[in-house]
């Protein structure tokens, strides 16, 4: 049966990894939300160059693997003289990658707000920036909360790539314990449980939000 001594003997490692996974996910969430919102606004803005930059960024990043982005930060940046700690390189990679998806989510949210509102706001004297900030974004955010929740679940799961670059996350420590004890089966089950502790409540919450949103329409 499952050998629980593998869990208790290495509890400090699991917990350190769990804590770092949580930190990486939260930091990347905040970062990618900010970056994603910026790119979403760029992409629908009337200023051509901004629009192009955002479009290229979103389309390119969405179509390449996360691990490639993370490797770029980890071993690519040092090639041009910038050395980042594994944890930071990994979290930045996660942020840049996730921002592309969040930008699309938010853009969809903004486009869901009827055009008439923008026109009304603009004709009542608000600038483009003001219209976005006070009229469109607050409403769009409400629509995008459930998909954002899904992005956060993805972030927690995706943060496991930190394990590949010695990012000290749950996957990394789990992998070390597995390699040291040879009891891989049980160790990975425990690692899975730790991930589920984070993701299952989140996904229950997201489906609750989705149901509520569907009901209020």
């Amino acid at each position: 049966m499952i050998d629980f001594s593998i869990l208790f003997d290495h509890m400090d490692m699991y917990l350190e990894g769990f804590w770092n996974t949580l930190q990486a996910s939260l930091l990347a969430l905040v970062g990618s939300f900010a970056l994603g919102t910026l790119f979403a606004i760029f992409r629908i803005s009337p200023i051509r160059p901004l629009k192009w930059i955002a479009t290229v960024y979103v389309e390119f990043v969405r179509n390449i693997p996360l691990i490639l982005v993370v490797f770029l930060f980890f071993v690519g940046l040092p090639a041009i003289g910038i050395v980042l700690e594994p944890f930071i390189a990994g979290t930045l990679g996660l942020t840049v990658y996730t921002a592309a998806f969040i930008a699309e989510t938010i853009r969809a949210g903004i486009l869901a707000i009827p055009k008439g509102q923008t026109e009304a706001a603009r004709s009542s004297g608000l600038t483009y920036g003001q219209t976005m900030r006070y009229i469109i974004l607050p409403q769009a955010i409400k629509v995008v909360i459930p998909p954002m929740g899904n992005q956060f679940i993805n972030l927690v799961k995706n943060s496991s790539v930190l394990g590949v670059i010695a990012g000290l996350d749950l996957m990394y420590f789990g992998d070390l314990i597995a390699a040291d004890t040879f009891v891989t089966f049980d160790v990975y089950i425990f690692v899975a449980v730790f991930y589920l502790i984070l993701t299952l409540p989140l996904s229950a919450f997201v489906s609750y939000l989705e149901r509520r949103l569907a009901g209020s329409r």
Partner: peptide, 18 residues
């Protein structure tokens, strides 16, 4: 101590100043 998937990755990390 930082551990990587294999020595090639570890050497790449060393060269990268990690």
């Amino acid at each position: 101590v930082l551990e990587f998937e294999n020595y090639a990755e570890a050497f790449t990390a060393l060269k990268a100043g990690q």
